[in-house]
Design a binder for these strands. Sequence first.
DNA 1: ATTGACCTGTGAGTGACTCACAGGTTTTAA
DNA 2: TTAAAACCTGTGAGTCACTCACAGGTCAAT
Lengths: 141, 141
Amino acid sequence: MRVGELARTARVNPDTVRFYTREGLLQPDRNPSNNYQEYSSNDLQKLRFARKARQLGFSLPEIKSILRQADDQHSPCPMVRRVFGHRLNGVEAQLQELTGLRDRMKSALDTWQSMPDGTPDGHTICRLIEHWDDPDKANKE
Amino acid sequence: MRVGELARTARVNPDTVRFYTREGLLQPDRNPSNNYQEYSSNDLQKLRFARKARQLGFSLPEIKSILRQADDQHSPCPMVRRVFGHRLNGVEAQLQELTGLRDRMKSALDTWQSMPDGTPDGHTICRLIEHWDDPDKANKE
DNA sequence: ATTGACCTGTGAGTGACTCACAGGTTTTAA
DNA sequence: TTAAAACCTGTGAGTCACTCACAGGTCAAT
C-alpha cells in the first residue's frame, strides 16, 4: 500500500502517516522506479497501535521504542513494562479526574435545562464558575 | 495580587497566567506607578475555572467567550449551553474509549507480570500490538 | 547600597500534528 | 492518446497551549 491507502484504512490523515514515517515509526520500502513508499500490513498494525497508544498519552518517542522492541523478538523489555506501568497510573488518574468533571458538567447542564429557553442565565454561569470546585453549591439556589 | 501570588495560589505556572492575560482571558488592573498587573479574587476564580475547562477539552477561545458571557450578566447564553453540551458529548466518548483502553493495558500488564523477570517477551508485545483491537486474542496463548 | 526575588515585554522552542506548495507520477475516461 | 484528476514526493510553515529564555525595570531585606 501507499500512503493514501494506508491512511484511509487506518482512518488517519495521510500527513500523519508521512509524519510518522519521517519520525521513523514506520519504515516502508521504496519503489525505486518512482520513489513512492510501500507500506506492509505490519505497518498498518503499527500505525493502529500507535494511534491507540497516543490516546493513552504515550509520547511518540515512547511508542517508537515500544515498536522497536516488538521488532526485535530476542530482547527482553523491562523498559516497555515500566513505561506501560507508568502510563497506566497516569491514565487511571486522568480517568478519575475526567469522571468527576463530567458529572459536574452534567449537573450544570441539568440546571440550565430546567430554565425556560432564552432566559438570561449569566448568574448561573457565574455561580458555576465561582463554585466550580464546590459542586454542592453550584447546584443550589 | 500580582502574577506570582496568583500563580502560586492556583498552582499554575506564572507564565501561564501571563499568557492568559495576553490572550485576554484575564484582565487585571494596572498599577500605574510600576506598571505591574493587579489581579482580583475574581481573576483567581476565572483562572481556576479555565484550568478545569481546559482539562475537559475546551479551547482557549471557547473559555474566553464563556468567561465573557459570565461577565455580562444581562445576556442569555445559548452559545455557552451549546458549547457545554457539545463538549459533554466529547468527554463522554473520550471517557468510554479511555476506559476500554485502560482495561486493555491492565490485562496486558497482568500477562507480563506472570512471567519471570527478564524473560524475553517480544512475542507478547507483538501479540499485544497485533491484536490491540481484539482484546480476547491479546490475552491468549 | 547591594543582593535577591520579583515584575515587564518580546521572541523563540516544544510536541504532535496539519496545511500549503511546487513539482513528479499514475489512473481514469473522453 | 491525451488531458484531467487524483495521487505521490520533500520541505517549510502554521497551529495550539503552553513554557522557557532573555534583557531590563522594581522592590524588600540585610
